[in-house]
Design a protein around this nucleic acid. Sequence first.
DNA 1: GTAATTTCTAAACCTAACTTTAGGTCAAGG
DNA 2: CCTTGACCTAAAGTTAGGTTTAGAAATTAC
Lengths: 151, 151
Amino acid sequence: MAISEGLAIGALARRTGLADSAIRYYEAQGLITPWRNAGGQRRYQRADIRRLSFVMIAQQFGLTLPEIREVLSGLPGNRTPTPKDWTDISKGLRARLDQRIDTLTRLRDNLDGCIGCGCLSLPKCALYNPDDRAKSHGSGPRYLMGDAPDA
Amino acid sequence: MAISEGLAIGALARRTGLADSAIRYYEAQGLITPWRNAGGQRRYQRADIRRLSFVMIAQQFGLTLPEIREVLSGLPGNRTPTPKDWTDISKGLRARLDQRIDTLTRLRDNLDGCIGCGCLSLPKCALYNPDDRAKSHGSGPRYLMGDAPDA
DNA sequence: GTAATTTCTAAACCTAACTTTAGGTCAAGG
DNA sequence: CCTTGACCTAAAGTTAGGTTTAGAAATTAC
């Protein structure tokens, strides 16, 4: 084993706690880009441990993989990211988090008075305010009030 | 049209902003229980508008459909729910929301100092604290650090 | 040099929350 | 009566984020 040939996928998996299959999947999604050794196996840089850790954290914050790829694209491509590079791209996460917290707080504060009242079925109710895109998954469009006629 | 035969699915759909198919799906999941008219078509009570509105709100708060069914089971079965009935079952939502807000806030407060530092790849980092079950979906186990060796 | 591990790819499978499709029935208007 | 629109069911398709499986090739261990 030549010195510093990079990490094999299993090693990276053990370092991050992710499954091999998840790491390959992230590659398919453009989140990480290993090179191949002579035999065609994937090899990773040690900096990729941090990259995947960042992915995991961003997921906990509710970002989708395309969004995370977006954020990661803010890292320098030509060199190993520095701590400052990481904190820089984290600013965007911070902003998103702040917004989600605000939204949830607003929702919470409206909940008690709103559920029991007639507005529960009205588009004007603050709880229907569609600017909360914490909206998780499920595919097709699923319009959240707003055009709903009367009630 | 006899007076007060209940709402047809299309009417309920227009009132709530949901698709017909979604309403049928919710029925299959036990969230709503219409009766059938002579011709076999579904008929809904007007109180079901509120019931579905509640479902939509609870979803925004991140509850799964089984969880929502659970919560809705707290409503009286024998009569149309009163405003108080609704605020009562909303208490549980309120508690969940409080917890999510706390978690996000904690995460946010750790973010800045954490991303850039070495701990990003360490199990002890607060950002890896697995007690955040805001963890959305994806099937199999996907252990979030915690057993990860060193890094 | 051979056996045991890893890794490789492609394709199928999984869950949640729905939507779409296909083929038929019910209801309301003229 | 007839047509149009609303409804019905069952089954298959969709998206996100992965996992599982199968069979083959590369590495590592002894």
